[in-house]
Design a binder for these strands. Structure first.
Length: 204
DNA sequence: TACTAGATCGGCT
DNA sequence: GCCGATCTAGTAG
């Protein structure tokens, strides 16, 4: 049986709202990237919010720099940064110009382009069932899987070949709220959100 | 299963 | 120079 997949892109007004509101509503939405001959898509199942006005862990906390200028722009753009000398991480900018808020996409559940995702991640066939759940359960893995890198920084999600599709809101009771992962500042902010019982989140 | 270290590079002090 | 919104392979238990 084929799942029915919605086709409308989220518009600017979705992204320009408060970062915590958008973070929760991004759960369940479909991230899509269309390459020349391939199409990648996946359901967003885990995110984290970052807000430079009060959050020391946010890249915008220090004020405007060359690296974070996209995150200081209007919502609906992609902020991609490189970290640990090895990995890219993919963020959705939110709010009005100058806010400095964004949402880190931590995990997705693959839908389209799974063969290419496997190739991007492992460069070989899957060895076991466990590897299937390991394809996109982490911010670095999502970027590797979808082949998202530096050149996608600043991309407009409302216009081009990377976009996010509308989908029904996840019910509040199915949204888990925890502290964020992998940071050393503002560690107590409960700004990580994920879909309850989903097998593709990075950590329960 | 749980912890540790190494990779590796760009941004910022 | 230092450190990071990470991942993987390795070792120990």
């Amino acid at each position: 049986m084929k799942l029915k997949i919605p086709t409308a892109k989220l518009e600017r007004s979705f992204y320009t709202r408060n970062v915590l509101t958008v973070a929760k509503e991004l759960l369940g939405k479909i991230l899509v990237k269309e390459d020349n001959d391939k199409k990648f898509s996946g359901k967003i199942v885990e995110v984290e919010a970052y807000d430079g006005s009060i959050d020391e862990a946010a890249h915008t906390y220090i004020g405007l720099t060359k690296r974070n200028e996209i995150m200081f722009g209007i919502g609906g753009f992609l902020y991609v940064y490189f970290t640990y000398g090895a990995h890219y991480c993919c963020n959705v900018v939110t709010g009005k110009r100058g806010k400095g808020t964004a949402i880190l996409i931590r995990s997705v559940e693959p839908i389209d382009g799974i063969e290419a995702i496997i190739e991007n991640r492992y460069g070989r066939e899957l060895l076991n069932e466990k590897e299937k759940y390991n394809l996109t359960n982490g911010p670095g893995k999502v970027c590797k899987a979808f082949n998202i890198n530096k050149k996608h920084n600043g991309f407009d999600l409302t216009g081009g070949y990377i976009y996010i599709l509308k989908a029904p809101k996840i019910k509040n009771k199915d949204i888990m709220v925890t502290k964020r992962i992998g940071i050393n500042k503002s560690i107590d902010l409960p700004w990580r959100f994920y879909i309850r019982d989903n097998l593709y989140v990075s950590k329960k």
